[in-house]
Nucleic acid binder design. Structure first.
Lengths: 114, 114
DNA sequence: TACAATATGTCCTATTTCGGACATATCAAG
DNA sequence: CTTGATATGTCCGAAATAGGACATATTGTA
């Protein structure tokens, strides 16, 4: 019995593709809400978006976002546990703003060049 | 001499990442404007977006979009040359509509679940 | 008649990415 | 005192993807 794939399935695939490919943007947006450390970002993305991040992907990403100047970090010791709390920079905010402009552009009606 | 990478460079990278990862969406949108065949899609994306598509990526993509029911094709013979003209289906239009809804969602202010 | 453009397709390897394993340390609870 | 949660990191093999090469046919132009 042939079963037609529901359109919702394809949209769910888009959702997952987006989360995978624009993980950097997701992380910047989370940190923009409030400063966070890696472990909490993992818990928060699972709780809020149902997306399970692997820490082996997240920690190197946080490092590269710091190198790019989009995040800055400070060490924080809470009850003997060392946390690396990340905060978004003005450059990071600017990047997110540009990114949103780009998304709005994608929502415009496509026109071919004459 | 250390040279800080311009924010525009990162935005350009986003643009390219988008074109690479959401090539299916770009193709659907182009075909939505007017029915097209593979070769013309390649020429049109280069002219309009400056994105060079490889035909080895496009043709299998067109096939899979047809299998998914987002496109339908008809053979057209123009001056002895066989063209496979693709047209968007109602399912394809629905997909693009859902995709736009998703983009609008991405533009909303992020809020963490309490 | 040879070359560029139009037109569609597959194949295979190199590169990239993914995701689980390895590694380590503290604290809280049972 | 052991297990689970918190916390941060690296490494490496497998899987997926990218992109150039291979393949073929017609038409238009120099």
């Amino acid at each position: 019995m042939e079963r037609e794939t529901l359109i919702e399935t394809f949209i769910e695939e888009i959702r997952q593709r987006f989360a995978r490919v624009f993980l950097d943007v997701l992380v910047l947006k989370l940190v923009q809400i409030e400063p966070m450390w890696g472990y909490r970002i993992i818990k928060e993305t699972e709780r809020t978006f149902g997306v399970k991040l692997r820490h082996s992907a997240l920690y190197p990403l946080l490092h590269s976002l710091e190198v790019k100047g989009f995040l800055r970090s400070r060490r924080e010791v809470k009850k003997g546990r060392v946390r690396k709390v990340y905060d978004i920079t003005s450059k990071g905010i600017q990047f997110i703003d540009f990114y949103h402009d780009f998304l709005r552009e994608q929502l415009q009606t496509l026109k071919l060049k004459k």
